[in-house]
Design a protein around this nucleic acid. Structure first.
Length: 431
RNA sequence: CGGAGUAUAGCUCAGUCUGGUAGAGCACAGCCUUCGGGAGGCUGAUGUCGGAGGUUCAAAUCCUCUUGCUCCGACCA
């Protein structure tokens, strides 16, 4: 992608409304733009990150046989009346009327629809277990939206729904999803902290939140200090709670091994048994021909919030530092001297080698943002650091005389000099 | 929902107290000079002063109503 063609309206000014790093940086880097309170446009840069995150989620869901589909954003109120939540959900739910004066709502969550699609088609215990998920927009009319996309009203959420034949099956599904979430967050360069949680409006009695440590987080976490170094399997059993549940008198962790930090909730999983299957008469026949109401769970990841959480946990005074797995581009190419023929040639050659072979679908292919704009050098460096692509290839006239360019690591600041050919070897498409 | 603010150019804000020609910096467009960390100069374009009503010879400014947005609290992926 050529930066001169790329819609990323960066700014050095900090908008007055933004208070926390992720909000400031998302606005300054041209990722999002506010459309209304708690509602944001997602510009191309942010969209790339949403897609990177979604792909990781998709891969990890596939591993546990959770199948992707789309529920709907607009739902008929009927299902919610049936489940009993139409009244219970309150003002947070956006209610709508169609032209025939029918009652609809914009999905805040989709348990009812998942149960509905299940009961329509699954009639036998042989159809279980089943797990369906989507990554789709939700709307919750928060009393007070704040911190940019961290607490927006409209947000992108991954939500999965599991159906099992009995409690043991449901618990196994819950545990599989638990592990999948740990892997998902770790692949994004994050350290998730699973904490026992209340199940809120979703209902049920087994629930965990996944928190990411961040100074600006809204939750206070108490956890065993072993946690940041634990393996995926160990994480599940390590002590961690939010402040609402922490009681120093009953805590099993000695004070000197206890950590207290602020966290951002990025995932939440629930087991709620037959709450919806019974309310909505979703049943299958078991091997004896008896009615069996499936045991259900639901599993959310706040995809759009994750972007903010990642930035909160990975930035410096100059801008964002993307973990490689979710970066909008793998590498950015800065041509410092666009009037210098050698620089132009070298940059163009590198750009084409990385970006040129669009037919190549090898998994090693890298995406490059080439800053070809005719602007000052300082502005290029500032934008590159602000946008936070993990690797910067810097082409300048001083080095190119000796057939050298620089490879700079955004996170460490480390610079390695190498030839354009070596850059191509490292980032070029390999078919 | 309770409390507190705020609304003037794309952004950050001045001007409002004390009514009298709509402003600055940044950004934007053109030209010139620069060129290893948001450089400098010249020229230029940009506004229903959030909306409605009122007072007045005259309203961004005073009064009334209204809407949006932000912040602080209790709720939430």
């Amino acid at each position: 992608m050529l930066f001169s063609n790329f819609f990323a309206p960066t700014s050095k000014d900090t908008p007055a409304d933004a208070k926390i790093a992720s909000h400031i940086l998302m606005l300054r880097s041209g990722m999002v733009s506010q459309a209304a309170s708690g509602i944001y446009y997602w510009l191309p840069l942010a969209t790339r990150v949403l897609e990177k995150i979604s792909r990781i989620i998709d891969e990890e869901q596939a591993r546990i046989n959770s199948q992707k589909m789309y529920f709907t954003t607009i739902q008929s109120a009927d299902l919610w009346i049936e489940s009993g939540r139409y009244e219970a959900y309150g003002k947070e739910m956006l209610r709508l009327k169609d032209r025939k004066d029918g009652d609809f709502l914009y999905s805040p969550t989709n348990e009812e629809q998942a149960t509905d699609i299940f009961r329509k088609y699954v009639k036998s215990y042989r159809g279980l277990p089943l797990c369906l998920y989507q990554i789709h927009w939700k709307f919750r009319d928060e009393i007070r939206p704040r911190f940019g996309v961290m607490r927006g009203r409209e947000f992108l959420m991954k939500d999965a729904y599991s159906f099992d034949i009995n409690f043991e099956g449901a618990k196994a599904s819950y545990m599989k999803m638990f592990q999948a979430y740990i892997r998902t967050f770790r692949r994004m360069g994050l350290t998730p902290i699973p904490v026992q949680a209340d199940s809120g409006a979703i209902g049920g009695n087994m629930s965990h939140e996944f928190q990411i440590l961040a100074e600006t987080g809204e939750s206070t976490l108490y956890y065993d200090k072993k946690l940041p170094t634990a393996s995926d399997e160990e994480l599940m059993n390590i002590f961690a709670v939010t402040n609402e549940k922490y009681d120093p008198n009953t805590s099993s962790i000695p004070e000197n091994e206890l950590m207290v930090s602020k966290g951002v909730e990025v995932g939440h999983i629930f087991y709620f048994g037959t709450k919806y299957s019974k309310a909505m008469n979703a049943f299958v026949l078991d091997e004896n021909g008896n009615k069996l109401y499936p045991e259900m769970g639901s599993y959310g990841i706040g995809v759009s919030r994750l972007i903010a959480a990642i930035i909160e946990s990975s930035h410096d005074e100059r801008g964002i530092i993307w973990p490689e797995a979710v970066a909008p581009f793998d590498v950015t190419l800065l041509n410092l001297h666009h009037k210098n023929e050698k620089c132009r040639e070298a940059a163009q050659k590198i750009y084409e080698a990385i970006n040129g072979h669009r037919k190549c679908s090898a998994p090693t292919q890298k995406e490059v943002l080439y800053d070809d704009r005719e602007i000052s050098i300082g502005e290029k460096f500032a934008d590159a650091d602000l946008i936070g692509i993990p690797w910067q290839v810097i082409v300048g006239e001083k080095k190119i005389k000796n057939n050298l360019v620089e490879l700079k690591n955004r996170k460490t600041g480390e610079i390695i000099e190498m030839s354009p050919e070596e850059i191509i070897e490292r980032f070029g498409k390999k078919c």
